[in-house]
Amino acid sequence: MIISPEVLTIYIIDAIFILFASVAFVISVRIVKNYDVNATTALQYELEKKSYLVATIIRCLFYIKVPFFLFFIFILNNISFVLPGAMCGAGVVNSSSAAVPLLFLKLLNSYLFAYWILLDKDDMSIESQPYIKQKFFLYLLFYLLLITEIYLEFSMFLNIDITSVVDCCGVIFSHTDGSYMAQFFGLPASFYITLFYGNFALLLLSYLVKSRYIFALLNLIFVIVALLSLIAFFGIYIYELPTHHCPFCLLQSEYNYVGYVLYSLLFLGTFNGVVIGLHLFSVDVQKEKMRYSLIFLMLYVSTISYYFLGYYLKNSVWL
């Protein structure tokens, strides 16, 4: 168990999340059950009013959740100074079994809540509100995910044992280890370069073709490809160290906090790309989303390439 002001803050914000998300949940259940656009009852009138409340709550929760996620990662890195053996967030993640699912869930929830807000915005812009039941039904599912996330977060911080020794990232993401990660590190550089730049080239192509499903699918694949190639291959150019494969050390001051920039760009790019596959927007909005997606991903790719090519220009040798 670990008590620091930062962790206490996380608990407090989580408690507020639970409170407000639950209010929204109860109202959503009523809306899904009883909402009827054609009815003229007092109940329908009340539900219409309350749908605004739910939408506002979810919007606020999301806008708090995004910087809060960055804060959470920042805290993970900080706690690593207290844990024996840990040198960055990876060590903290290693210290609790809840941490890995928690991170994935946090990531998933960020995408889902951002999607919900777009759905809401689109729904509100049309007079008949065609997606109203759909969006509140989706929220019921997202609520469960959110509660699971908060539960995992609590159990993670409660289970961290500050006296027992954990692995540092050098061990977790080790070449020689028999773990599944080690197999990825063994793959040749050309594999990652082809995969990463190839995927991006296909994205550009699908942008020209303007096919929304292909564009979304490629974006989805790009999330995985980008993260994998970052850990297994491009990361070593940022660290300028052929054996260091940690996705957390990027977030530390030694590397100018470049991780925050990279992960934010990746999120913004792929979210805008994936969301057009999930929902049919008007043509203008869809075009704009594609453009945004491409701009952010281009920034991501050029930042990565800057480190990758910059290393070669400076040292005239590949790692």
């Binding site: 002001p5 407000f20 605004y52 409340l53 708090i64």
Partner: peptide, 28 residues
């Protein structure tokens, strides 16, 4: 930095969240 961030999270978002329900009452 984390102190500044922590104070931010304890004041700004909590205040905004506390105003949601009163604002909604006014708006509707």
């Amino acid at each position: 930095y984390e102190t500044l961030a922590l104070l931010f999270f304890l004041s700004v978002p909590i205040y905004i969240v506390a105003t949601i329900i009163p604002s909604w009452k006014i708006a509707t």
